[in-house]
Design a protein around this nucleic acid. Structure first.
Lengths: 194, 194, 194, 194
DNA sequence: TATGAATGAGCATTCATTCAT
DNA sequence: CATGAATGAATGCTCATTCAT
């Protein structure tokens, strides 16, 4: 069980995103996801351990892509401020490009029980790690204040981006999100700059 | 029904906080709350419309106190930076002083359905309003950058504080939260300062 | 307990009729009846054993009046056919005059549990007795067929009247009921006549 | 949901009849019906929308049979009086043959709320229609009085049969019901005859 | 007498998961 | 691999009745 891969694996994950975005977390029954994916209820359990595993895997796959794309474009020649601008811009860009996914990650998946939320935090660690790398680089290059607390600074970046995106989703994604990247970047950089 | 008053009203709210903190949102059955409050199940419904009303009222009461206490101590003679330091310090202080409440507001109540979350957001508005007042004051006094976007700046403050507290709760509240107030304050003020 | 009499006794019964007629049997809570009667919930129990006792007493009082009025006007000088016409006419007349009561006795009170229905049948016995008296009189005077089965004939009369009234109530009492007395009387008399 | 078919559908209906007859309408919990039917509680909801749907379907199935059987044997060669005798006899016969069903339809199902009662009345319409057909036939053939009011005559027939059966059920079905068919038939026919 | 706050038993329905085919 | 019928545990809320005042 739980032997990932096969075309149905992705079918089911995409179906889950669609169903959760359209019907909400608490109305996303396994049978509804199965129907949307075009498979039988039981088939779900050939690809996933249980319902929670669908959601964890969904987050894993999507968040993996999310961070990978950011890392890919974070070339060494960029300045630390350019790197942050890239990160913030891509963070907003990617979520704006897939509003279903934005709804799912910003609103719906947070209604999950504490256990699933712990797992989601595990998955997020890779992103937080990237943030800490950038912060450390900024400090050692003398660009950021030397006494910056990595944990707090990282929480400030993530907390801010997350809050901005969540508010945008709660306003039905009806204004442009990417255009907030520059002002947010400006405030954060001033906050860290030496 | 729902005639808020009497000692039992508060008893039930306190019991709800304790039960949710100890057993989690989804394990907080009405009967468990009633037992903890030392009343019969039916008595709950003499003071609250339904289960959701208990949670909304809980948030209303506690958040009302929370903001009121901050406003009370925000005397006009304070500088804008002192006001923000006061706000951040008291935000951390109050949640650190009631860890049960912190668990409930940061983790458990967020698992609620969309409807309850909407109500919680309504209640939060008063806090966000306070933040905007301070930001406006800072800008008009020339202390903050004149082109600061109120919405984004407010999201940065709230997002940061919320993320800091949530991380602290998820680490089982085992380190000191208040001591983060000064460094967080420093980063935010630098971000806004003209 | 259950010490009948006092002005509140009748107040409560009238309130019960009104509440049941307006809200239906299953929505006629004791507290609603108390409110309508202008007394406290607990006061009900100074005049009635329990909820069932209210309903039984209601039926007893109203049915008592009902039959008493019919008997009062059934003077010995009337022929058997005239007596039946009087009974049928008054049966329809009285229910038409108090539509609330008609709704309660024809529709709502029948939703009660089997136990209460047994008691109601007890109370009805007096009416059925009157019917049997008339039937016996009709047979011994040679006016009705001698081999008429008292039980069946009584069931035919009562079943017919009851069905006619119930249908009228279910059509919202919007046509004239009394005008059915003569044709119904005609059919029944032909059925019995020697 | 509610896909009527399969052997379990009938199993559940039969179980409902048995449980209601033995324990009464208000003590007929879904779990009790499920147990009696030998299925899990949840299985009920694969065959019925909700509890009310069980009862409606029960009445529909049983009443459908009831009327169908009568219509089947009502061959055109019969005289109008023979047709009525057939109807009355079969009405009594069928209920006497299934005393559980008689208890359920005469006593228990009448305790249901107004909504279900409306549905039951809908289902009964087919039977009342049959009665009106016979009455019309009797009048146009000159056998019944030309000025017979169809509605009142129908109410007399149905009210009488219903009252006779209900009394029999309330006396615990302990005397013979069918033997009442002839005398009842005689009284009714005299009532209508030209 | 009269009050009304407090009690607490009772139940329809959903849905993640299994397993025989 | 795939199916989908069957399972059964779990819970918010109502309301007749009591009893301290």
């Amino acid at each position: 069980m739980g032997k990932k891969k096969g075309p149905k694996y992705n079918q089911i994950i995409e179906a889950a995103v669609k169903v959760i975005a359209n019907h909400g977390y608490h109305q996303a029954q396994v049978s509804k996801i199965a129907k949307e994916a075009g498979v039988a209820d039981g088939t779900i359990y050939l690809y996933f351990e249980n319902k929670e595993d669908i959601l964890t895997s969904l987050f894993e796959e999507k968040m993996g892509d999310f961070v990978r794309k950011i890392r890919d474009r974070m070339t060494p020649n960029l300045s630390i401020e350019e790197k942050f601008l890239l990160l913030i811009t891509m963070h907003f860009e990617q979520l704006q490009a897939d509003k279903h996914l934005a709804i799912v990650t910003q609103l719906e998946l947070r209604q999950s029980n504490t256990e699933l939320r712990q797992k989601i935090n595990e998955i997020l660690k890779d992103y937080l790690l990237l943030l800490e790398e950038l912060l450390t680089e900024g400090k050692s290059s003398g660009y950021f204040q030397a006494d910056l607390d990595n944990r707090l600074a990282r929480q400030m970046v993530f907390g801010t981006l997350d809050e901005v995106v969540t508010n945008w989703v709660m306003k039905d994604c009806k204004y442009n999100l990417e255009s907030s990247a520059k002002p947010v970047h400006k405030m954060l950089m001033r906050g860290f700059r030496a």
